[in-house]
Nucleic acid binder design. Structure first.
Lengths: 133, 133
DNA sequence: ATACTATATGCATATCTTTGCATGTTTGTG
DNA sequence: CACAAACATGCAAAGATATGCATATAGTAT
């Protein structure tokens, strides 16, 4: 049943690759493969206007690379695509343990989001775990 | 010396990723990571006009992903970028041993290039060997 | 030389992507 | 309810990329 296609679907693959072929999106994905982040943090990280960031997130979300999660007034995103996670691991290297969250990296001192408040769960959020293909 | 940049160069990487983010170029690279092929074969494989194929090859060549090699009237291309070879391995999977060259795949019966003639060296051309990063 | 074959190049047009910005929606708060 | 904060959406202008096609070049053979 189905086509005996041992040929890769170059069209579909190249469509997905295009999502990484953009400096800001690649950067966003590099962050979101490590831990979930809210839009306000990504906005600070990229140093771009908020609608700009939301648009890139929309694109990634509409292609099911990332998933949103509303927490009160904030929205957290995380990577959910295992294949893309594996691509990122090859392209950007493995996730280092010395990684420091955006809030500490960029000194978001006056950020009121739960992650910057004491609202963050003890020991931080559960790490993102994706089975690599 | 130099910047202590543990940050990946997202701009440069995304530029390189763009080269794969195109169905015909991805297909070309998938062939050229296996064995060297002449333009006439790639033209037959993609079923696109020759200038179209040459233009994609030029782009890949100008970014040093592939290298040309003139043999008489024909030009052979092969993949020479190890990092991209590793990406392709992750994205398209490992190179299978059941691979059949384009000439046999597409029945290029009237192709006069050396590879289709008996001019091909005994046992075929040496396989392309690239050290994966 | 002449003509032929394989491939490359240049350029115009069409098409998709990116980016900026105004406005909309949702949730929380007084 | 009114208002503020965080984020999403829609749309248009600018920019980049893709494609088609005419023509150029470089080897080969006659």
């Amino acid at each position: 049943m189905g086509v005996d296609s041992r040929e890769p679907d170059y069209r579909a693959l190249s469509q997905r690759i295009k999502l990484l072929a953009h400096p800001e999106r690649l950067r966003i994905l590099d962050v979101l493969r490590r831990e979930r982040e809210c839009v306000c943090h990504l906005e600070a990280l990229l140093d771009k206007p908020q609608p700009y960031v939301s648009q890139q997130l929309r694109l990634l979300r509409e292609h099911d690379l990332i998933q949103d999660e509303k927490v009160g007034n904030n929205v957290y995103y995380r990577l959910i695509d295992a294949e893309v996670a594996a691509w990122l691991e090859q392209i950007l290297g493995p996730i280092t343990s010395e990684h420091v969250g955006i809030a500490r990296q960029k000194q978001l001192i006056d950020c009121a989001c739960p992650k910057c408040d004491a609202n963050e769960p003890e020991g931080g959020y559960a790490p993102i775990v994706i089975e690599l293909t």
